[in-house]
Design a protein around this nucleic acid. Structure first.
Lengths: 116, 116
DNA sequence: CTACTATATAAGTAAATAGTTATATGTTAA
DNA sequence: TTAACATATAACTATTTACTTATATAGTAG
């Protein structure tokens, strides 16, 4: 097998616990394909805005995700500089792409008004 | 990238949640190197016997681990036939080997009396 | 059969988690 | 400056989780 950079076991467990939630795992799967803001996630999850914000907060606190404000919106994306990015990537290679959800986001296009 | 068999997202989340516990992740790391019975795990975890049995139960219920009784002892090992085995393997490739704990188990050798 | 060992299960508890509603903050646009 | 929108945060609640102790089950050895 190819050499594999290791991550401390306890840290790895924390990352796995974070990804061990259906909503967060889906968020990460979507972020692999495109950055998103909260209102876009709202289109594809059957939950409230605070709930999504709280999930994103956890992912951000762990360093897995970063945010960037653009006007009214805050865009979330995967943090490729994160020490766990390699682990996350290999995990996600076992998870189906969230094509349907991404299509819904792109069609609903809630941020169309900002023109970006 | 090499073709990667996918696992339903919700099932993957369940597996990740299971591995997202420090004790269970360590158990799986140890089981990658050798089968173990509960009393062996007891040597390396700072917790009670029921606690370990309960973790093993969860791993077994998910199909990740199988058990085999040999006399008084029940030996646990990774279930390579499990549909999630590939996922587990790749995850574990990012986790350090539990050499120290395995050494402790082999030196204490609580099942020495059975001669196996 | 009895004592002993290994393990499982049951029942209870404290802490963590994911959701809720209400409200605060920050940005834009009229 | 006010209204509207996007998001975060606070406070609360219900559920889940991981542990504990006590007890049951199963095998072995005398």
């Amino acid at each position: 097998m190819v050499f594999q950079a290791k991550v401390e076991l306890e840290k790895a467990a924390n990352v796995l616990k974070l990804l061990g939630d259906k909503t967060r795992l889906t968020i990460v799967a979507i972020l692999q394909k495109r950055e998103c803001c909260v209102c876009e996630f709202l289109e594809v999850f059957d939950t409230s805005q605070p709930s999504i914000s709280q999930h994103l907060r956890k992912l951000k606190d762990a360093g897995l995700v970063k945010e960037e404000r653009r006007g009214q919106w805050i865009y979330y994306s995967l943090n490729q500089q994160c020490e766990f990015y390699g682990l996350v990537e290999t995990i996600m290679s076992h998870v189906p792409e969230q094509i349907d959800k991404i299509k819904i986001i792109e069609q609903s296009n809630p941020t169309v008004r900002c023109g970006c």
